[in-house]
Amino acid sequence: MTRIVVVTSGKGGVGKTTTSAALATGLALRGFRTAVIDFDVGLRNLDLIMGCERRVVYDLVNVINGDANIRQALIKDKRVDNLFILPASQTRDKDALTQEGVEKVLNALRDDMAMDFIICDSPAGIEKGALMAAYFADEAVVVTNPEVSSVRDSDRMLGILASKTRIAEQGGGDIPARLLLTRYSPERVMRGEMLSVEDVQDILAVELLGVIPESQAVLSASNAGSPVILDTDSDAGQAYLDAVARFLGEDLPHRFLTTGKKGLLGRLFGGQ
């Protein structure tokens, strides 16, 4: 059975595309046939994060309009088997995404391409692109930074997910949504400068999928066009690997939530 997952947040710049790339790559590494779709029509970026920007020929809207079939448009990843990317178009036509069109693409990925997972990388905001990315989803990953505007927007997005998906419209209720807290800095949390993972969970009241620490590896990965989950030496890469394991139902303790214990001298004079 194909699982359709929307990666969403409301607010921009919190790590949706980074997370979509990492989640899709992680699932493919586990042997699942996985497609990741960029729904940010007009502002395509998943191709850059995945490092396939020069191989884009056709895109999501081409498939919707019938200019290309799904096989022509899907880009097969060169590093990981079973991983496919469907880029967004750079058209400025906001009505390019239709519900029927998106359904057609998802059905083709499920029936013709036999995908196990379809990851929908949502654009920021609550406009059409975001609603289309979420509409057919079976479950959601809500990406949030420990920062007031991001938490508020995530709550708003959870409210939208509860009513604006196909499953909800058919009376199936809320789709399962899980929280991925990114750009987490345990040092700042300990100093009382940043909302803790418990604080955010208290407010949003959703299950925690993972915590990704603030990490230089994320920028390095996007510079190189290689999903950060492939950087298995990095803290962010390992945190994403853990999140993928939890996504698949494994019970792993959360890591990277505390700073390393300091010695007496460190505590007296230590600063960071």
Partner: peptide, 19 residues
Amino acid sequence: QRTASVAKERLQIIVARER
């Protein structure tokens, strides 16, 4: 004042209102 606790309090209020 710990700014994180201020943030949490403000969020709890606004999120409850918006819900």
